[in-house]
Design a protein around this nucleic acid. Structure first.
Lengths: 395, 395
DNA sequence: GATTTACTTGAATCTACAG
DNA sequence: TCTGTAGATTCAAGTAAAT
């Protein structure tokens, strides 16, 4: 059964390669006319598969999905040590007859999401051990490419009242691109800057959604049983999308994704089956104050900066032809030629090639490797490039 | 699976009969006669399926499995920024033709393990996002009952050298019982006592296996590419087995499970395909000094002050994105961005970098430099960090 | 001998773009 | 679509070498 599942899913995935940028292909079902207009910043009430099929292909930049977890709870209710009852997730939408039924459901919505994702889009799914292994396997079977699994470490998890297991103190998010193809958005430097100048790790420590942030009904009870903290969703959107990007959430619930998207200057498409949740989401999102554009401006990453030929650095007079370049520790030397190449002995080539050559390395960033002497001190030639880029910005 | 190799039966095999009163069923294959004698505290060299089929059913109390991860590495080698090559895991034993092939392999060894597990036995499997979703799904499909997923947070993970993903800083263990039936071993109180009287959580912070603990050959190179830290295995054995219990490891490698089992007064059965690894394991285990029963309590892990990202301070609401930070004498200003970086004019970066920049210094401690105004007074952002650290100590 | 600095290493699905 | 090249990129520990 499982092998058949894999084969079928694989075949479906192979067949379904949309070609964005060329002809806009027909909607998957062929029954519902495709509207090319995106229902932006709206909550669509209805079945998520039907709603997804009505969206144009290759139209969203990011998907955040918090699907049903398929919790398999026992019969009786769970009691705390003080005999109060734990408010368990036993809603109809979380009930599946079998793992197979859950797998079918999972493959269906993932396939539908994949169709509407741009080739450069990525997808986030959150789950617990009850469902995340099914979801992860389905992702791989459908041709998604897992980039990371992220652990949401809960600051204040519910203890295990019976003392029969470890405190279930985390949930797992999977971050995947549509295919192994490169070119997705990842704000590496920004995340590093917000994390003590260290790479952001795959384990995130974030409190549960409680207190003011938790939506409560007029009866004082929580509106949705599994509302996620905005901080968690915000980190996914900040890391893998840009201001103005379209974020899709096929299990919108009470609209955490929409609220965060609006606050961070992203557009959203929310799909939710229950009108009660959708209504709560609309009211919640309307109250969100978007951040100022100034606070959202994305800093240009080094990769996005304009290219500066080394020849331009020479032409600007920062380095003279005939000068000698050396490395930080003055172990190697090279001669600057008027055409922007370097010479080391008989060999000539770019600053990168000669840098690699003299060190015996396969590659080298010549900009950071080579230095010139100015007033008795070594100056990195990358400093000149920085000066020139600053001049280009002000011009 | 086709090649059934004969196990090397150690001459010094201790004789142990499986529990009387339990029906000794025929071996699964029906080809090799079942030996009712358990090969305790030995390393069986050979194919793990064949070896498992020769063990009597319902005979082990715990399984610890570290199967191949099925890493799918690219063509070229990965270079660090200093151009040194990463020693990748590209061994033959980690190569599978497809997910389907890996699934087949996984179901086979899990099924074989399940047969030899006592009804009360539990199983641990470790993996990464490359394989753990396949393993978890297979476990559920085969009737295992997942008790917890545990996150091994690595103290010193390998960074992401290209800056294209989050640092892959954890691996996942699944802890499962043979079936939903109750009655497994879990030392709740002991673990709680070793964890400052707090329930042991599902996220464990443990360093990699390096230094003295890492087995090295005569050439000084690591014997096995994926040796696991003893602390990790010890915690699984302490939590889910009793002294004298039989612990099975079907992917024994260099015998971490055996060494830990011996040290903690458990018996072990190790199965390993490569004689080189098995030989190293035997020598290693022979050198292990078993602990006295009284000394088996977990040693509390010493922990440094947790690092707090400025992003977490924002997420916690202590500082709002779009707010202005200033120094104690209000000479400099910077804008707080939602990703935890600051902006001063066109420049963006961490609290430390921007603090240094505005002062014209080479470095700056942003935590003590930057302040926000609260009720007309300046509050240092380091105060917020202190508050957050207090809240994190329980985690 | 004590302290500082340099070097090594760990389960890795690790680039982007012009021509 | 493929190829060649510009050029961007690392954290925590442990060990060895240098001061």
């Amino acid at each position: 059964m499982a092998s058949l599942r894999t084969a079928v899913a694989g075949a479906a995935a192979r067949k379904q390669v949309s070609r964005p940028g060329r002809a806009a292909s027909a909607p998957r079902m062929g029954l519902v006319p495709s509207t090319q207009r995106l229902p932006l910043d709206e909550v669509i009430v209805g079945d998520c598969l039907a709603a997804l099929d009505r969206l144009p292909p290759a139209s969203v930049d990011l998907v955040f999905a918090d699907p049903p977890y398929n919790l398999q709870l026992g019969e009786g209710s769970l009691l705390r040590p003080d005999q109060s009852a734990v408010d368990a997730v036993d809603d109809d939408w979380d009930q599946f007859a079998s793992f197979e039924a859950y797998d079918t459901f999972t493959r269906a919505w993932l396939t539908a999401c994949r169709r509407v994702m741009k080739p450069t889009a990525t997808l986030w799914v959150i789950g617990s051990y009850h469902n995340i292994f099914r979801v992860g396997s389905a992702l791989q079977d459908l041709g998604f490419w897992i980039l990371n699994d992220i652990v949401w470490r809960k600051a204040n998890p519910m203890p295990n009242f019976r003392g029969k297991r470890f405190t279930n103190a985390h949930e797992t998010l999977i971050w995947a691109s549509r295919s192994p193809q490169k070119g997705y958005t990842f704000h590496y430097e920004a995340l590093k800057g917000g994390n003590e100048d260290l790479q952001m790790r795959s384990d995130w420590f974030i409190p549960l959604c409680t207190g003011e942030e938790r939506l409560k009904g007029s009866d004082g009870r929580k509106v949705h049983p599994t509302q996620k903290p905005e901080a968690l969703v915000a980190r996914t959107l900040l890391s893998a999308s840009n201001p103005g990007d379209v974020v899709l959430d096929p299990f919108f619930g009470t609209g955490t994704t929409g609220a965060v998207a609006r606050r961070l200057g992203r557009r959203f498409i929310g799909i939710e089956r229950e009108e009660t949740y959708a209504a709560a989401a609309r009211a919640r999102i309307a109250a969100v104050e978007p951040l100022s554009t100034a606070a959202l401006l994305t800093a240009p990453t080094k990769r996005a900066e304009p290219r500066v030929p080394f020849l331009s650095v020479i032409e600007a007079g920062h380095v003279r032809p005939g000068e000698t370049l050396t490395d930080e520790r003055r172990r190697f030397k090279a001669l600057v030629r008027p055409d922007g190449t370097l010479a080391a002995g008989p060999a000539t080539g770019s600053i990168h090639k000669i840098g690699a050559l003299v060190q015996g390395f396969p590659a080298c960033n010549g900009w950071t490797f080579w230095h010139v002497e100015r007033a008795g001190k070594l100056v990195c030639i990358d400093d000149f490039r920085g000066t020139m880029r600053a001049g280009m910005r002000s011009a």
